[in-house]
Design a protein around this nucleic acid. Structure first.
Lengths: 195, 195
DNA sequence: TCTTTGTTTGACAAAATCGTCAAACACACT
DNA sequence: AGTGTGTTTGACGATTTTGTCAAACAAAGA
């Protein structure tokens, strides 16, 4: 008989992603995931044979999602500044949903080793780097290595979402106040990146 | 008899910090820590009664260290820009030694709850925020909420160190290349933060 | 030297987490 | 309705991780 699609396998992965990427519980157990998905833990072993395989799969998909999202966005045919603004918009949505995605990846990479996937050179990324260089030459952006421009972009977007609990504590801010700050940052980041 | 100071208690904490903060193994076991410290695991339970207490202690000291370091640096009597440059220098050293400190804190906070410590208002921080506002009024810094200036500073410094494995992969860089990039960033961050 | 007390360890018990198996279940097909 | 196959579950055992205890050890004071 053909494989029935009960959506269970997807549900498991989605739940795992929610717990790891959204709730930031980086050392959750398979029981935690099963409970959150409202099913028996045995099912996790039925679809993915072991905890390690599930984790590896989630990690892999997380990286792949990021790569696809990034490439797709970089291929749009917009003027440079517009493209960056759109990029920030997209990433803000993504990061709001999954603020701890990168942290989980890093944690997994550091705990178990990592077999670096072949990583064929991303053409859209190469092009974007060239666009940045052009923007620098045109005096739109301060002089720097194009790679640093991208690193700055990611840093300014991702870090405040990752460390939200810490910053809220350091600056004595409540939830709505911090939320407001984050949305304000979208415009500010553009102002900062461009001269 | 008085308590003998064998340095063991400190060694345990230092080792834990190394594993958590430096090596980024956020879900290390007490056995891992004991092995790395070259001692029996029982000693961990002798000095700290349970794993939770050790973790909580390490977390607490980590936050305290950060607060002290930050306040001390903010109290120095230097012109604004010099102060920021010094700040970046200090933090670069700190972050190179412990790139995953914030990640560990966030992970712990998200996994177990968190009793927000009273957090008396830090006077040096308040003063620094005023200094930033002055710099903005003087046209040294782009117009933004002073809090965002600090968040930018942290983000630009910390994130590239936290996500080093990812960026190295995305941009196809080897260790020395990434190292070079990081040192170059110190100057670049100043250029970026100031008009 | 002998005793006392703090330190360290190995061995054991307890708890948590994980993987497997047989049986129950549900759906498609005849 | 009856059969077959994929799905789900509860129960069990294996492994990992954690906590405890008695005994060995080391250093300071009598």
């Amino acid at each position: 008989m053909a494989i029935r699609d009960t959506g269970t396998e997807q549900l498991i992965k989605d739940t795992a992603k929610r717990i790891f990427f959204a709730e930031g519980k980086l050392n959750a157990t398979t029981q935690d995931i099963a409970d959150a998905a409202g099913m028996s833990r045995t099912l996790v072993n039925y679809y993915f044979r072991s905890k390690d395989i599930l984790f590896e799969q989630v990690l892999k998909e997380g990286m792949e999602d990021m790569r696809v999202r990034l490439d797709k966005e970089l291929m749009t045919d917009l003027p440079f500044k517009k493209k960056v603004e759109k990029f920030i918009d997209i990433f803000y949505t993504e990061l709001t949903a999954y603020p701890y995605k990168e942290a989980f990846m890093i944690s997994e990479i550091n705990s178990h080793g990592w077999v670096t996937p072949p990583k064929e050179r991303s053409i859209p990324l190469q092009n974007f780097l060239k666009e940045i260089q052009t923007a620098i030459d045109d005096g739109l952006v301060k002089k720097m290595k194009p790679v640093n421009f991208i690193i700055n972009l990611f840093s300014l977007m991702a870090y405040p979402l990752l460390t939200r609990p810490l910053f809220k504590w350091v600056f004595d801010l409540n939830a709505p106040q911090y939320e407001k700050l984050l949305t304000e940052r979208k415009k500010m980041i553009v102002d900062l990146l461009f001269i």
